[in-house]
Design a binder for these strands. Structure first.
Length: 195
DNA sequence: TGGGCGATTGGCT
DNA sequence: GCCAATCGCCCAC
């Protein structure tokens, strides 16, 4: 695909909305599942207290510091995986979290993995489960048709990122306006409820 | 070396 | 709306 991954080397706030409408396709021995991305969040590396890379490079976030166009997968809450597309020039640890999408291929397989027919890719961990993505896919190269970019979407909404305690004021979540597969906004739970 | 916590989800009140 | 599940990460001891 022309312009790929050069189109991922710009600023993360510019690239993130461009990933809306892109299709991520992952094949395993069980078959392929493809998801059309409808909701993302931008994480601006060292400038962003909400980013895993804010405190510098560690074993977990090393992929974020590598070249763009690879998948950064992390494990959280003891049971879930979330996936990001690494963007920006190599050495700049910016990434775009894939928060939600619409299953456009392999629906039956996605339903089997999710053990339900609803909300197949609505939420970052559900999206990974539907696609069959886990830590083994950390660093996966998305070139050669794994991630297919479309044209810049026309109607994009923005708002605060979900579940963050830090930097929750930055409106760095992007979604396709009105799309039914977009996840529900949940603010981070406060630890100190005293006024 | 230990413990608090998390870019979440699903089930129950 | 509330909360448990569940464990790797990371930093303060």
């Amino acid at each position: 695909m022309p312009g790929w991954p050069e189109s991922l080397t710009g600023g993360v706030l510019d690239v993130a909305p461009r990933l809306l409408g892109a299709v991520l396709r992952h094949s395993t021995a069980d078959g392929p599942v493809a998801v059309r991305i409808t909701e993302v969040e931008a994480y601006d590396g060292p400038n962003d207290p909400g980013s895993h890379a804010f405190r510098g490079r560690t074993a977990r976030n090393a992929v974020m510091f590598g070249p763009p166009g690879r998948l950064y997968v992390y494990f959280t809450y003891g049971m879930h995986f979330c996936a990001n597309v690494v963007v920006g020039p190599e050495g700049t640890p910016s990434a775009v979290l894939l928060r939600a999408g619409e299953v456009v291929e392999g629906r039956e397989l996605a339903e089997r993995r999710r053990r339900t027919t609803r909300d197949l890719a609505r939420g970052p961990a559900r999206l990974c489960q539907a696609l069959g993505i886990d830590l083994r896919h950390n660093g996966l190269d998305l070139a050669d048709g794994t991630l297919t970019l479309g044209s810049r979407p026309a109607d994009v909404s923005t708002g605060p990122r979900v579940g963050l305690r830090l930097a929750h004021d930055r409106p760095w979540r992007f979604w396709l306006t009105g799309d039914p597969t977009v996840s529900k906004y949940r603010p981070a739970k406060r630890r100190d409820p005293t006024p």
